Simulated assay, not measured.
Amino acid sequence: MRKVLTVCLGNYCRSPFAALALARRGAAELEVRSAGLIGKWEGEPANESMITAARRLGFDLTAHRGQQITLDMLNWADSVLAMDAAVLESLRTICGEASERKLGLYLGDRDVPDPMGKDQEAFNACAVLIEAGTALHAGRQ
């Protein structure tokens, strides 16, 4: 079973939904967790607008509680998927060259736009993009 860690800035919007969507799509082959670079929302539920966007796609994000990334999480993961280039750059600094091979962008070559501070439609679009991105990771060994 491949272990995947999804990471965004706060583990409040994008990475929690990405983990949920990946877990559903790759249920038999993936173990998925999520974390954020900062601990601002540690222990807190996901953003209400992302919960609503997830619900529209048939996902229940209400059980999520935010976590700040730790070295143990990074060591646990076979793949660490950043939601955007800025997060990826921070992960490279944290991990160093030894873990470079396991780091990448969730969408492969582009960012998942951060919907924070935007309207519900931005969260809905973000969730659709994240769900579509699961195809890049499920079924891959």
Rank of each mutant, 00 (worst) to 15 (best):
L20F: 10
L88I: 02
K40F: 14
S90C: 08
T62F: 11
T62L: 11
L136D: 03
E121F: 04
Q141C: 09
L37R: 06
L57N: 10
E131V: 02
Q67T: 01
M116V: 15
F123G: 01
E97F: 13
W76G: 11
E89W: 00
T134W: 00
V7G: 08
L81I: 10
V87A: 01
G133T: 00
H64Q: 12
D60V: 13
I69L: 14
G108F: 09
Q67G: 01
R110Y: 05
I69E: 04
A35C: 03
K102L: 07
A138N: 08
K102T: 07
F17K: 11
G43F: 04
I94Y: 13
D111V: 04
A21G: 02
T6A: 12
D119G: 10
Y12H: 12
M1S: 14
A132V: 02
L129V: 06
Y12N: 03
A125P: 11
A132H: 10
G10S: 11
T62N: 09
L37E: 07
V32W: 01
C95S: 15
E42R: 14
E44I: 00
L107P: 14
G58K: 08
D84N: 15
A35Y: 01
T70M: 03
L88E: 03
E131K: 05
S99N: 10
R92T: 09
E121L: 12
A82M: 06
K118T: 10
I51S: 01
A18M: 08
R110N: 06
V112C: 09
A27M: 03
G117A: 04
T6L: 02
L103M: 11
R33A: 15
C8K: 03
A98K: 15
C95Q: 10
G117K: 05
